[in-house]
Every structure is written in structure tokens, then in C-alpha cells.
């Protein structure tokens, strides 16, 4: 069943046992975002040490995709330097981006299998199936958008 490509075991695990759930103590920044489409919520707290993301955690509620994506993200990003984190964000975005085919309005059932898995992304590849469901990409991106905002704010007030 195609649905199993969306709801993979790794996501199940992260949804049931979210990593880095809660709030970072003495956080430098916190960003709260809501997905107006379905009401998913993420509150991301981050602590920096020089140019490194030394700690991060999330709180939130919402669908499997939004919460599992947040958990996977914190696991991947925590401890990375800011530049490396930005690279991961970019790769993740690229993975979820649908190949636009102007002749087909159907979702990209073929196209997303064209994305080879990105080894750098490790477990995040479990979210690849999301790109077949354009409305769900917003769910998967919610935590990542909060992270991007946090990095943006950090740049403005170092």
C-alpha cells in the first residue's frame, strides 16, 4: 500500500518516542510556529555556543508527520555548526520539493522516486514519501521553518 511509503516505521518510532522533547534550559532563542492548514504547532528552543547549535528541543502537537519531522530534525541538527545545519536544511528542502511537471497535475508519484536517497540525511530520508502529498509538505516543514527563523534571528542578534 502506497500509504506505507508515507508512514514509515522510523516515523512511527519518532512519533511515539519523540527525541529532544521539551524545552532547553537557558535557551538563547525560542520560535513558535503554527501550520494554519491543519493546526500543527511547534515550539523550538535553541542554545548556541559560538557558532555551534549546542542544544535544542521542541514541544508541540499535531499530525504524525509534523511531530516526527521535528523529532528527527532535533536529533540530526543538535551539535552541528550553524553552517553545517544550514546545509542539512537545504538538502532536506530539496528532498521534499516536488519536481514540477507542467504536463501533469497529478502528484509526483514517479518524480519523487527519482530523488535518490540523500545519504547525508540519514534517517530523514524516511520523510521522502511526503513529497507525494503537497499539503503534507507543510507539516513536514513546520519544525524546519522554526529552525530557519531561529538561525535568522541569531544572525541579526549575535
Amino acid at each position: 500500500m502506497a500509504l506505507d511509503e508515507l508512514y514509515q516505521e522510523i516515523l512511527l518510532d519518532h512519533y511515539k518516542h519523540p527525541r529532544n522533547k521539551g524545552r532547553v534550559e537557558n535557551a538563547d532563542l525560542s520560535v513558535e510556529l503554527k501550520n494554519p492548514f491543519c493546526g500543527d504547532e511547534i515550539l523550538l528552543t535553541v542554545r548556541f555556543e559560538q557558532d555551534k547549535i549546542s542544544d535544542m528541543a521542541f514541544e508541540g502537537q499535531g499530525c504524525v508527520i509534523s511531530q516526527a519531522s521535528a523529532s528527527l530534525m532535533t536529533e540530526k541538527i543538535k551539535g552541528l555548526g550553524i553552517d553545517d545545519a544550514k546545509q542539512v536544511i537545504e538538502r532536506f528542502q530539496r528532498m521534499l520539493k516536488r519536481e514540477e511537471d507542467e504536463h501533469s497535475d497529478a502528484v509526483c508519484s514517479a518524480a519523487c522516486r527519482h530523488h535518490a536517497s540523500d545519504e547525508e540525511l540519514d534517517e530523514l530520508n524516511a520523510l521522502q514519501g511526503v513529497c507525494e502529498y503537497p499539503s503534507r509538505v507543510k507539516c513536514a516543514m513546520l519544525a524546519w521553518r522554526s529552525l530557519m527563523q531561529a538561525l535568522e534571528q541569531r544572525k541579526q542578534t549575535p
Partner: peptide
């Protein structure tokens, strides 16, 4: 089951329902 996940499942079963706040955040 989050309604968003539910709607995706129902879509697979070829049943089209809406999930969300239905433009009524005060109701939610």
C-alpha cells in the same frame, strides 16, 4: 489519530473529507 493523518488515509480509500480548523479557530 490526528485528523490530518486521517484525511490522508481516507483519501487513499477514495473518500474525500476535509481536515483542519475549517476557518473557525474560535470553535477549535
Amino acid at each position: 489519530i490526528h485528523p490530518h493523518d486521517l484525511a490522508t488515509f481516507l483519501d487513499q480509500e477514495r473518500v474525500a473529507v476535509r481536515s483542519g480548523h475549517h476557518c473557525c479557530q474560535l470553535v477549535m
